[in-house]
């Protein structure tokens, strides 16, 4: 039993160790701060700033868009609809199932709608597809905190003559730490996912300046560089993996921090 636990916990440490030791060897300031220069993919100078920025754009865009959709749905299910209503249960089941749908399926579906609307592989198409991926993550995490808020809280606001909309605002305020955790979770997932952006975001060496342009992403930068036969380029993939892991770990740790820290007024 303890051995099993050690294997599982050990695999995490082993991953971190491997990535860190390999990545540190080729991590330079240039990789973080420059876009690829001519001949980058045969080992010449430059970095993956394009991919870092591209990934940030996509993750931020998708998380914001995802919040705009998931928060209203969670509020509807918990506050507007009757408790445990048919609609509420179906919605929860839907998000639980969507949560399990692999990103490659979202990627393929995202590609079909992209073609359907005549979009090119672009930042916008990438954001839309990743939004599909993060909506269930956001909705489930926010639902969990709002569902656990005591019913007496809504009894209290209703008794004061508040409408459902006004009650929702109180619940949102109550759920702020949970919402921040949800945002971080979603951001971490969005920034690390490759299969969704593989066909939808494209890949380019420059930093996108509009939604219609294609963009590079970190996971794909790792993937493409690793499949290069040139060792120099492969080593940069390890450095990129280290950068990505570092970002994701920071995000996970701050999510942990926020979910523990309760808001000032929380009951």
């Amino acid at each position: 039993m303890i051995l099993a636990t050690l294997i599982i916990a050990g695999s995490l440490l082993m991953i971190l160790y491997t990535i860190a030791s390999k990545g540190m060897q080729s991590l330079t300031w240039d990789i973080i701060s420059k876009v690829p220069e001519g001949g980058y993919y045969i080992g010449k100078g430059g970095g993956i700033l394009n991919a870092i920025i591209g990934s940030l754009y996509i993750s931020i865009g998708a998380t914001v868009l995802g919040l705009v959709i998931s928060i209203p749905v969670v509020l509807y299910v918990n506050i507007y609809a009757k408790r445990n209503s048919w609609l509420a249960n179906i919605t929860r089941l839907t998000f639980d199932v969507l949560f399990g749908i692999p990103s490659i399926v979202y990627g393929a579906f995202g590609f079909t709608i992209m073609v359907y609307f005549g979009l090119r592989a672009s930042l916008l198409a990438g954001i839309i597809t990743v939004t599909l991926l993060v909506i269930p993550i956001l909705a489930r995490a926010i639902d969990e905190v709002i569902r656990l808020a005591p019913t007496e809280l809504s009894d209290a606001t209703y008794a004061l003559g508040a409408t459902r909309w006004e009650t929702s605002l109180i619940f949102l305020r109550q759920a702020i730490p949970g919402i921040i955790t949800a945002i971080l979770l979603s951001f971490g997932r969005a920034i690390g996912d490759a299969a969704t952006v593989l066909f939808t975001a494209g890949y380019t060496d420059s930093i996108p300046t509009s939604l219609g342009q294609p963009t590079a992403t970190l996971p794909l930068a790792i993937f493409f560089q690793l499949s290069s036969p040139i060792e120099e380029v492969q080593n940069r993939a390890y450095a990129a993996a280290l950068i990505l892991t570092f970002i994701v770990l920071i995000i996970s740790l701050s999510a942990k921090y926020f979910s523990k820290k309760l808001s000032k007024h929380k009951i």
């Binding site: 005591p150 809280l153 009894d155 209290a156 009951i267």
Partner: peptide
């Protein structure tokens, strides 16, 4: 309404 346990708003 005064409920069994007090629930101040956050």
């Amino acid at each position: 309404l005064l409920s069994q346990r007090p629930f101040p708003l956050p």
